[in-house]
């Protein structure tokens, strides 16, 4: 048999297998359905939560926070990375600080961010921002630093203005690595939003999980986990499509 898209068939197969393992474990582990619900009850709860709008509400809330924090990180991190990549004194000044702050988990900022920004969307957005700002900043700096110096020589040889050097050399040269960095950091941002929502807010998928745990509804907890996974998959897929746009793919398109 031949399939149009073998990757999809493999993926479906992998999910089917894990569903089967899940079902079997749930059935023969000896745990009650309250502790370890199988796929069936979770599916029923999924339908129930979708029908009453809870799931949509929480997903939208989470996505909003990720979008806000992620855009903020992009808008600040990428230009700053370009600057640090090109300007050696600034880089020597900024790098130690950046590499000192970078390994501090965004979760460690939870107490401070709650104190500073109160209860609501802001502390969560701030945590998302922190989680993707540093990876984007560092990736952009490295991308600019690794531009072949020949291209800057060409720029001076053809008398490029500063703006032309930026728009005709730095931006196109770094786009492939920046898009890869975006793809990696959106996943980190999505990881962090769930944790952030467990403390400071009354909505979002993280809140749904925490709230369901308090109500001892493990089927709802699992629905939350499933939806997080599905949305993560979608975000990654969107980023992958971004990499296929011709102007971002010059580095990989049939390279010799």
């Amino acid at each position: 048999m031949k399939f149009k898209n073998p990757a999809l068939v493999y993926a479906a197969f992998a999910f089917l297998i894990s569903l089967l393992v899940w079902e079997l474990t749930a059935r023969f582990s000896g745990w009650s359905a309250q502790v370890f619900p199988g796929p069936g009850p979770v599916l029923i709860s999924l339908i129930e939560l979708t029908a009453n709008g809870t799931l949509i509400k929480h997903s939208v809330a989470s996505l909003f926070r990720v979008t806000a924090g992620f855009y903020l990180a992009m808008v600040l991190g990428i230009p700053l990375g370009m600057l640090l990549g090109r300007n050696t004194p600034l880089r020597l000044l900024g790098n130690p600080l950046i590499h000192f702050l970078r390994p501090i988990s965004p979760l460690a900022w939870i107490p401070l961010s709650m104190l500073w920004f109160g209860i609501g969307d802001l502390p969560a957005v701030f945590l998302i921002f922190l989680s993707s700002f540093f990876p984007l900043l560092v990736a952009t700096t490295i991308a600019v630093r690794s531009i072949n110096p020949i291209y800057f020589q060409v720029a001076t040889n053809f008398n490029f203005s500063r703006f032309e050097t930026f728009s005709k050399i730095m931006v196109p040269a770094t786009i492939p690595s920046i898009v890869t960095a975006l793809r990696l950091s959106i996943t980190i941002a999505w990881l962090v939003v769930v944790a952030a929502e467990m403390i400071a807010v009354q909505s979002g998928l993280g809140y749904l999980i925490l709230d369901s745990r308090n109500a001892l509804r493990m089927d709802y907890v699992m629905v939350g986990m499933v939806v997080i996974g599905v949305i993560g998959l979608l975000l990654d897929y969107i980023m992958q499509q971004l990499m296929k746009i011709e102007s971002t793919a010059w580095g990989t398109l049939g390279s010799k």
Binding site: N148, I150, Y151, V154, K168, I169, P172, A173, I175, S247, W250, G251
Partner: peptide, 8 residues
């Protein structure tokens, strides 16, 4: 080699 800008 590599004197041409590869994104153009």
């Amino acid at each position: 080699h590599n004197g041409l800008l590869p994104w153009m």
